[in-house]
């Protein structure tokens, strides 16, 4: 197995856990690899963007932190594209689609409270992302 194939598998695992709370099914993994073969240009990036992807591929938690940073400071970069691709595959493929199609139930008030909590968690991830990645971005820029 090539190192690029291993890297894509690591990404797929971390991203699927972040987005659907479970490891990817074989069909998801296969589709994720196939999409990279079909649209390679969408997933190429600069050295800093590769740092973001590499960091995100280590765990779902790191993926959240790196993506919170990417959403603000690199919104069309490869990390974002890879995550959106994974979400598209998960929402069309069983069994992950069942989880993504299921509502987060409760009364409208409870749902609203959940939304606020999710938002706060994401803000926390963003703050952590800024602390972790801003110096690396400067450093990588210098190195480039």
């Amino acid at each position: 197995m090539s190192s690029q194939g291993n890297q894509l598998r690591r990404e797929a695992h971390a991203f699927a856990r972040l987005l659907a709370g479970a490891a990817p099914a074989a069909a998801v993994l296969e589709a994720y690899l196939a999409a990279h073969r079909a649209r390679p240009a969408a997933f190429r990036g600069t050295s800093f963007q590769r740092v973001l992807v590499s960091s995100a591929s280590r765990s779902a938690f790191r993926a959240r932190v790196a993506d919170a940073y990417a959403r603000m400071f690199d919104p069309a970069g490869p990390l974002r594209c890879k995550l959106v691709l994974m979400l598209a595959i998960l929402e069309t493929t069983p069994p992950a689609h069942r989880r993504l199609d299921a509502p987060i139930g409760g009364s409208p008030a409870a749902a609203l409270l959940r939304l606020v909590l999710y938002g706060l968690r994401s803000v926390g991830s963003l703050i952590l992302g800024v602390i972790l990645f801003t110096p690396r971005r400067w450093f990588t820029r210098e190195a480039d």
């Binding site: 972040l18 919170a68 995550l83 993504l100 509502p103 959940r114 939304l115 994401s122």
Partner: peptide, 13 residues
């Protein structure tokens, strides 16, 4: 304007 994990949860809700 959130990370995609959070956005997916918001989407479900």
């Amino acid at each position: 304007p959130f990370d995609l994990g959070t956005s997916a949860l918001i989407g479900r809700a």
